[in-house]
């Protein structure tokens, strides 16, 4: 069976990927904008926060800076699409590739260790919780706050305008909504959340690494699709809950799979497993939905 440490570890990463899934929900679901920038904005958030922390910045301010960096990355993708009319998927690939160089520049080397640094987690270790429970508690609070704020936002006038932009842009324009501006705002918000996830991940893992973004988009999508299969996302709050639940269950499932010796799986097989799971989710009937249909050929 799964050890307690492995269990909490899965919860911890699950919560972090819950934030990623929020971001993917905004881009893929709300805006209907397939955005792969996240593979670059996740390590960007990690890199920015790690570098600021080793330069002695307050870890929360460093984390805030990571959010802003993610938002800037998202804005670049959205502007490439809105202003220069580059296809959304391609625009995001361009930003993602560019971010690989940016991240190396930010860190000055391929990875930055945070082992002896103060992080957002440091003060929480004094509260008397078991060591491996601390990140879970803190990240749960962060995720719940993000969920609440996102829920309120999606119910606000601006949030509703964003939802209309993704669902029916022509109608949105006719209602006086600047759809281009909404796309920039939404994709920025999405990547800001992913930057936050990257920053928290680096701090809980004790390092930022330039390769840590590989496959984040696919894991986030797997969480989103899985969550939606469990919780029908017919309201905003259910859709957001589906993101978190999907991400946690996904990480637990991975932890079980890696733990079961009979399967002979190892950590490096993770991306392969994820890709296979997402493929199954796309191919299996019943899980078909608009995110999925974006990646399959439409019949004419």
């Amino acid at each position: 069976m799964l050890s307690e440490i492995a269990f909490y570890g899965a919860l911890e990463t699950g919560l972090i990927y819950g934030l990623v899934a929020f971001g993917i929900y905004i881009s893929f679901r709300v805006l209907d904008f397939p955005d792969l920038t996240v593979d670059g904005s996740f390590p960007l958030g990690a890199a920015v926060s790690a570098v600021l922390i080793i330069h002695g910045w307050n870890p929360w301010i460093a984390t805030g800076a990571a959010v802003l960096a993610g938002m800037a990355a998202g804005s670049v993708t959205a502007l490439l699409n809105v202003k220069l009319k580059i296809l959304n998927l391609l625009a995001s690939i361009l930003t993602m590739i560019a971010l690989y160089s940016v991240n190396l520049r930010v860190m000055g080397r391929p990875n930055v260790a945070l082992l002896s640094e103060q992080t957002v987690l440091t003060p929480w270790y004094d509260l008397g919780l078991a060591y491996h429970q601390v990140p879970v508690v803190l990240f749960l609070i962060v995720v719940l706050v993000a969920l609440f704020l996102l829920w309120r936002f999606m119910k606000s006038e601006t949030g509703l305008a964003m939802r209309a932009t993704g669902a029916n842009p022509r109608m949105a324009r006719a209602q006086g909504i600047a759809t281009g501006g909404m796309i920039v705002l939404g994709v920025a918000l999405s990547n800001g959340l992913v930057g936050l996830a990257g920053a928290l991940f680096a701090q809980s893992q004790g390092a930022a690494d330039v390769t840590m973004g590989v496959g984040v988009i696919v894991i986030g999508l797997a969480s989103l699709i899985g969550g939606e299969a469990l919780i029908t996302p017919n309201t905003v709050i259910r859709a957001l809950l589906a993101c978190v639940v999907g991400a946690i269950i996904y990480r637990l499932a991975i932890a079980f799979a890696l733990n079961a010796d009979v399967l002979g799986l190892q950590a490096q097989d993770l991306n392969l497993i994820t890709a296979v799971l997402v493929t199954l989710a796309i191919v299996l009937p019943g899980v078909r939905n608009s995110v999925v249909s974006k990646f399959t050929r439409k019949k004419a």
Partner: peptide, 17 residues
Amino acid sequence: LALAIKRGQRRGLSTAV
């Protein structure tokens, strides 16, 4: 209807409906 009642006006962060 809440989208339409704000047609052409500024949209803020208050509840839409």
